[in-house]
Design a protein around this nucleic acid. Structure first.
Length: 168
DNA sequence: CAATAGATCATCT
DNA sequence: GATGATCTATTGC
């Protein structure tokens, strides 16, 4: 295949399963969140706002629904394919958001439940040193102050948090 | 540059 | 029937 693309994960958020009201799985298993309660190392892909898909990885043992949402990627290989899929945007905006990166990578709900340790969609350990930053999560209503968003400090592919109306 | 509105539908109550 | 882990275009300065 010549549609192969690769990228580095530069921004993520953690969702703590049934303990975390902001998590899809907070109330227990449903048909959709089934994958989250399954074994770790599998992709959870869901449709949001009727138009975009978001990519997560189940990271806790079977029965525990903790997961990691991938929020931004730094494109590494297959840039032309990504540009073609995303249209005319600067390279730094090819995958700097949850909905954008799935388009750039060609990820859809067809990948839901996929084993990420082997197969077409795979993840491997980071190479090299980098500094990480932490902040509250974005775009949620519950537990909006929990510091569960992690990103690579200073990386220009990290999406910038919108200025949300803070109570003055 | 910052803020706002609109698109659009699977999932759950 | 309402809601949501979003993005883009458009408006106003």
């Amino acid at each position: 295949m010549h549609g192969r693309v690769s990228a580095r994960i530069v921004e993520t958020e953690a969702y703590l399963g049934t303990r975390d009201r902001a998590a899809h799985a907070w109330r227990g298993p449903t048909p959709r969140t089934q994958v989250l309660f399954g074994p770790p190392g599998h992709a959870y892909v869901y449709l949001i706002y009727g138009m975009y898909e978001c990519l997560n990885f189940a990271v806790e043992p079977e029965g525990s629904a903790g997961c990691v949402l991938i929020r931004a990627l730094e494109p590494v290989g297959g840039l032309e394919t990504m540009r073609k899929r995303r249209g005319a945007v600067p390279d730094e905006q090819l995958a700097n958001g949850p909905g954008k990166l799935t388009i750039a990578m060609g990820i859809t709900r067809a990948q839901n439940g996929a084993d990420v340790t082997r197969g077409p969609l795979n993840v491997c350990a980071a190479d090299g040193d980098f500094d990480t930053g932490v902040s509250p999560r974005i775009g949620i209503r519950h537990n909006a102050d929990w510091p569960l968003r992690f990103f690579i400090a200073g990386n220009r592919f990290v999406g910038r948090a919108p200025n949300r109306a803070a109570s003055s």
